[in-house]
């Protein structure tokens, strides 16, 4: 998980992430680190400043093709999304689930 340091993740955040992830998810995330990195960069460049919080809480939403990830975020009003996610990172998980199930 050392690739997360270059996105500004702290040791505490990476340790918390390791606690959250199951064995399978951990090895999947490490194997798909290029995809995960690309999505973290996209979310950061999108304007979500607390992307590290989002990632530690819901790492699974970053394990998808970048095109799919961009497609999910593109369905919502940008300013509204950034504002809501900043107040409560849970919102992004709800939005992803809403798009996946509809």
């Amino acid at each position: 998980m050392s690739f997360l340091y270059k996105y500004g993740f702290t040791d505490e955040e990476i340790d918390a992430l390791k606690e959250t992830l199951s064995k399978d998810m951990y090895s999947e995330m490490a194997f798909l680190k290029n995809i995960v990195s690309s999505n973290i960069e996209y979310l950061r460049d999108f304007g979500v400043t607390n992307y590290s919080q989002v990632f530690v809480k819901y790492p699974e939403i970053f394990m998808r093709d970048t095109e799919s990830f961009q497609n999910v975020l593109g369905k919502f009003d940008k300013e509204d999304l950034i504002d809501k996610v900043l107040k409560n990172p849970t919102v992004i998980k709800k939005m992803v689930d809403y798009v996946d199930n509809n």
Partner: peptide, 18 residues
């Protein structure tokens, strides 16, 4: 090939090249 890593890293620290 470009999207995958060249190894599998496990939670216990084991790394296997792939």
């Amino acid at each position: 090939l470009s999207l995958a890593d060249d190894r599998i890293e496990f939670k216990d620290g084991t790394i296997i090249p792939v």
